[in-house]
Design a protein around this nucleic acid. Structure first.
Lengths: 185, 185
DNA sequence: CTTGTCTATGCAACGAGTTGCATAGCAAGA
DNA sequence: TCTTGCTATGCAACTCGTTGCATAGACAAG
């Protein structure tokens, strides 16, 4: 279970509320680790009980108050411990691959629109990544040398970019294959 | 929930027992959908109750008897229905990416061995994929034209190969970054 | 002043996934 | 014969993740 650790990393990068964390999990962090707000609130409560994080009530103007969480010494130590443990390679769940292999028992051509939909989603995400890279790392104003944290964020982002490019190319391969299988009219 | 559907596809490709399915989930199917034997046995029981699959007791020589499952008409229909529904793009869980971003709060250099371990695992898997491709699709004796099912299996395998190649290249990028961050001795 | 939208937090119920354990047939080798 | 190892199936307990619902403050539009 690593949601705790993903939250620790995010809170170390910048303290924030459960709501803010759930927003971050929709964008940057969410690209390699998903979580809903219910999961986050529940885990935050447990982490607070375990003494990994502190809460601070923050009154706000123009919006409801929030609880801002920040990482404690023991929380940092817990992250450190996890960083030094080996993790197993990710377990994958690719619905689309199951569908492609299953398509032969139904109608392969019917999958084309679904694959195109996925291709579009990945293309959108790639655009989004590239914009983020331009903004934070390679654009104008990025002349200043990056610190270690930025370097590491950048290499993770490059991983996301490579993943999306590979996926788009593969989906094009899938589409070509599906079209080839379609009997000529 | 798509474990049911992955099992339907696998049983349509070839009927088999829970044990055999769990072996398949360790190899071919397991590369894009993981499941343990407990999960499989439990779901098989439910699928049988729902009338998606039939059981047949098969006595064996030199080993315990087994229950061989095969897909029924309603099971096939259930798969068909699912194939025509849109699925959401996969949810990702990359422990390693969390670790990389977290490394700055600990010791980036300590991650190098972990990343090398992952690189090795992906290189092994790539070798395995390529051997499978050679054996089933591109090797000698593959002159006969492939049927639709084989074409679709091949395109999924090509996806696995592309994924592993991309991942290995990215991990090399990560390693280079980690080495760059290490202060010169 | 009502409706909608965004911020902000949370409960309850359920289903999916993991871990540990248990049983049993059969074969090979020490 | 006793242990080891592979085949084969399964229960029980637990944790993780998802879905639906509920509440409430603040603001903007109609």
């Amino acid at each position: 279970m690593a949601l705790e650790h993903a939250i620790l990393v995010s809170l170390l990068e910048k303290p924030g509320s459960g709501y803010e964390l759930s927003r971050r999990f929709e964008r940057s962090i969410g690209y390699f680790w998903t979580a809903t707000h219910q999961q986050i609130y529940r885990v935050l409560k447990r982490m607070e009980q375990d003494g990994w994080i502190d809460v601070r009530d923050v009154p706000q103007q123009g919006r409801p108050d929030k609880k801002e969480y920040s990482v404690t010494g023991p929380g940092r130590a817990a992250l450190s411990g996890w960083l030094h443990e080996p993790v197993e390679p990710e377990s994958v769940r690719h619905d689309l691959a199951v569908k492609i292999r299953g398509a032969v028992f139904d109608d392969p051509a019917a999958l084309i629109r679904e694959v195109e939909r996925h291709r579009q989603a990945h293309a959108d995400r790639l655009t989004h990544y590239l914009a983020g890279e331009q903004r934070d790392f390679t654009g104008p104003g990025a002349d200043a040398p990056l610190d270690a944290g930025q370097e590491l964020q950048h290499v993770v982002l490059r991983g996301g970019i490579a993943y999306e490019r590979m996926t788009i190319a593969w989906l094009d391969d899938v589409l070509a294959t599906l079209h080839r299988l379609r009997p000529a009219p």
